[in-house]
Amino acid sequence: MFLDRFYSVRDKHIFITAPQASLFAKEVAGDFNPIHDPDARRFCVPGDLLFAIVLSRFGLSSNMTFKFLNLLGAEVPLEFRESDDGTIEVCDEAGKVYLEVNRSGDRTFDKTIVEEFIRCYVSTSGKNFPHTLIPLMESHGVMFNPDRPMVMYQSMSLSLSQLETPSPELELNKTDLEAVGKRGNVTLDYHLMSGGKPVGDVSKRIMLGGLREYCPKAIAAVTEEFYRLKAKGTGA
């Protein structure tokens, strides 16, 4: 599986190092959020990687909901627990849950289908900033803290009318931002396309931290830093 180099298994536990997590974020998801840099003070493993590992181990189901409950640091011994009702929990040895997954419907373990869906799904993370979030924040007159940008997944869900989805693509359908004090709750809705036809719906909920009045100058500086990190990470 293409994910093998992004984690390791020891004593029946999964371990993700900071370099492995950062490499996945940049190389597979196209995500250059500074919080995924190995030397970041508040480093956390990207939720997209946990999402990908779950699908690789438990298959792709027609209906799935992923709830991110806690930030995951590097090299935490992880257990992937499956309950009798099919619920999956990603937790540490102390029982702290980082991700909860509910699923229903048909399921496939076909490696090609699962990998193509993972790559399609996580690739949108590389487009969230600046392409999707900047116009959305500007239209609402708010932005995250430019000194400590906090953009984190809260949940993701998918509903597929079919599991056979050759060359899947996500097409952005609707965006929304709700400001609650210093916190912004973003909802991104997509159509899943395959062969030019809609075959499902995908929704992602994202939290923005340190909400404040929109400032074009500050956003321009954050965007410049984003592209600097991207150029550095891709060797461009």
Rank of each mutant, 00 (worst) to 15 (best):
L158G: 04
C120D: 10
N102V: 09
G209A: 12
H140D: 00
S22C: 05
L163E: 07
H36I: 03
A40H: 15
A74S: 15
S155E: 07
E225D: 15
V54C: 14
L136R: 05
T108N: 03
C91F: 05
K204L: 04
K230P: 03
F58G: 01
A221Y: 04
S104P: 04
G181W: 05
R212T: 11
V9P: 00
T17V: 00
G95C: 10
E79A: 13
F144G: 09
M156F: 13
G200I: 03
L60C: 07
L49V: 03
L158H: 12
I219V: 15
E164F: 10
G233D: 02
N145E: 13
L158T: 05
I35L: 15
T223E: 13
A29F: 01
I16H: 02
H36T: 09
A179Q: 13
T124K: 11
I88L: 08
Y121L: 04
F51A: 06
P216I: 01
A25C: 03
R228L: 06
E225F: 04
F117Q: 00
A21M: 08
N63P: 00
T175D: 08
L71D: 06
S22F: 04
K127G: 02
A25V: 02
P135Q: 07
S139W: 04
G195I: 02
G86P: 03
I219K: 04
D106Y: 03
P149G: 01
E138A: 15
A25G: 10
L192M: 13
D92W: 12
L55F: 07
G196T: 09
A94Q: 14
L188W: 10
G209K: 07
Q154K: 13
I206H: 02
F68H: 04
S61D: 06
F80G: 01
P19Y: 04
G47W: 01
I219W: 07
E178A: 13
M193A: 03
L160P: 01
S61K: 04
D4E: 15
E224K: 15
G95T: 05
